[in-house]
């Protein structure tokens, strides 16, 4: 690690700051999980039946895509530490691509629901009762907020890729790269819970 004496850098603080931010993210989604548990407890049958309408196949596929993308971003950090810039960039590109495929799947999934007039505020959905309205309201809000995190994560990873390309991030200075990894893993972590709660528990 050759850092010029005039530039102050504190990787440990940067990492701690990132984690503190991730804690607020965990509490944000935690709050939504509380809402989910209560509404599920009040409307067990409606949640049970509504969850049947989600495609387990697309849900499983998206889960696996996110898991692979989590592994590839972790591998890109290993690569940058081993001074392999090209491999690090390749792994980041794969991560971005997997994130994009995840969003495309989500687009088709939401599109199918919206075609069937299932969306928050839909009059046809309202006819199906309070339980369905709550289930789909939570479904669209939580997966939507998660998708927003995917988009932000992809922008973050994009910035990191450019910095690696310009050698601003290298084997001696990769905390930002690691922070983008932490963010991406958190997004994966949230999906690990969203997936069984919406797609599997029927």
């Amino acid at each position: 690690m050759n850092k010029p004496a005039d530039i102050h850098r504190d990787d440990e603080a940067s990492k701690t700051g990132m984690w503190l931010f991730l804690f607020t993210e965990m509490l944000l989604f935690g709050g939504l999980f509380v809402v989910y548990s209560v509404y599920r407890y009040i409307n067990p049958t409606a949640f049970h039946l509504a969850a049947h309408e989600l495609s387990v196949f697309i849900g499983t596929l998206n889960t696996i895509l996110l898991l692979i993308s989590s592994a590839t971003i972790a591998m890109s950090i290993t690569a940058i530490q081993k001074k392999n810039k090209k491999l690090a960039l390749l792994f980041l590109c794969i991560t971005l691509l997997l994130g994009l495929v995840f969003l495309i799947n989500k687009y088709f999934e939401w599109g199918d629901h919206i075609k069937e007039h299932i969306y928050p505020g839909s009059a046809i959905l309202a006819l199906r009762g309070q339980g369905d309205v709550l289930f789909y309201g939570l479904y669209f809000f939580m997966t939507g907020l998660h998708a927003l995190h995917i988009i932000i994560g992809m922008i973050f990873i994009g910035v990191v890729s450019v910095l690696i390309y310009k050698d601003k991030i290298n084997s001696g200075n990769f905390q930002l790269h690691e922070n983008s990894g932490l963010y991406w893993h958190l997004v994966d972590l949230i999906w690990i819970f969203l997936f069984p709660l919406f797609y599997l528990i029927t």
Binding site: T60, I64, I68, A71, M75, I77, T78, Q81, L200, I201
Partner: peptide, 29 residues
């Protein structure tokens, strides 16, 4: 010293995670 996680470890963890996902899908069916 900064810990470098080997590619192998990451691949093993990934396969465990995918297996667990498939198990949870099968069990809930």
């Amino acid at each position: 010293t900064h810990h470098i996680i080997p590619y192998r470890t990451l691949l093993i963890v990934l396969s465990v995670l995918i297996t667990l996902t498939l198990i949870s899908v099968l069990v809930t069916q």
